[in-house]
Computed example of a mutant assay.
Amino acid sequence: MSDLVPLTGEPLALDLVNTRPTVGELLATPEDLRAWVAMQAERLPDAPEKITPTELAAVHAVREHAARALEHGRHGTRPSQTDLDALNEAQRSAPAISEVAWNGTGLTVTRRRGGSSAEQLAAWLAEATAELLADPAITRIRQCEADDCVLLFLPAHPRRRWCSAARCGNRMRVARHYQRNRAG
């Protein structure tokens, strides 16, 4: 698996932070963000179909604040007030409502946000970060043990060591095998 393909499947806030690996930027262009949003479609309601530089800048800002706040949270220390305020402001810019509608046979509730598409996308990501920050599981978040990897994950199994067995796990096993065979 290429390091240029974003990992998905962790809590949404971690998937966002993990779009900035050791080398490169996985959300460098509006098209990169559009592709990432498409991968997260089930978790990002009403995501804009057209991504502009404005949406990209809003997501980058939330990602930076989320990364710093999560780093503190996973170590059990207090995040900076600046980062918390920025995450709260992103949510306030596009408040969410539970929209009630009749579908012909019953009532449905759909969560929607106001604001511009940039504000909405940033708000969904800031909300996902806020939920993870308040989750007691935050202290179980780990950084990948591969030498050249900074990606974070929330292990379902306590022995998990890598962000991805296919990405870093294989690379580390191959490196160990090479070192053993080279030494012998």
Score class of each variant (00 low, 15 high):
V23L: 11
G24W: 04
E25K: 08
L26W: 11
L26F: 12
L26A: 01
L27D: 05
L27A: 05
A28V: 08
T29S: 14
T29L: 02
P30L: 06
P30Y: 05
P30H: 02
D32Q: 12
D32E: 15
L33V: 06
L33T: 07
L33M: 14
R34S: 10
R34M: 09
R34L: 10
R34C: 04
R34E: 13
A35S: 12
A35R: 12
W36Y: 13
V37F: 05
A38D: 13
A38S: 13
M39A: 13
A41C: 08
A41G: 08
A41K: 09
E42Q: 15
R43D: 15
L44S: 03
P45V: 00
P45T: 00
P45S: 00
P45Q: 00
D46Y: 09
A47R: 02
A47C: 02
P48T: 12
P48C: 07
P48R: 08
P48L: 12
P48K: 09
E49N: 09
E49M: 04
E49W: 11
K50R: 15
K50A: 15
I51G: 01
I51Q: 03
P53Q: 12
P53V: 07
P53N: 09
T54R: 11
T54P: 02
E55W: 04
E55F: 04
E55S: 09
E55L: 01
L56Q: 05
L56M: 07
L56R: 03
L56E: 05
A57C: 03
V59N: 03
V59E: 03
H60F: 01
H60L: 11
H60W: 13
H60M: 08
H60G: 10
H60Q: 15
H60D: 06
A61M: 11
A61R: 14
A61S: 15
A61Q: 13
V62S: 02
V62N: 06
R63M: 04
R63Q: 06
R63C: 06
R63G: 10
E64H: 13
E64L: 12
E64V: 08
H65M: 07
H65D: 10
A66E: 01
A66W: 02
A66N: 03
A66P: 13
A67W: 12
A67C: 05
R68L: 08
R68G: 03
A69E: 06
L70A: 00
L70G: 02
E71I: 01
H72N: 15
H72A: 14
G73S: 11
G73R: 00
G73H: 02
G73T: 06
H75V: 04
G76D: 10
G76H: 10
R78G: 02
R78W: 11
P79G: 01
P79C: 01
S80K: 12
S80D: 12
S80Y: 13
S80M: 08
Q81E: 14
Q81Y: 12
Q81N: 11
T82I: 09
D83Q: 07
D85H: 13
D85I: 04
A86C: 10
A86D: 00
A86P: 14
L87Y: 00
E89G: 12
A90D: 01
Q91I: 09
R92T: 09
R92F: 07
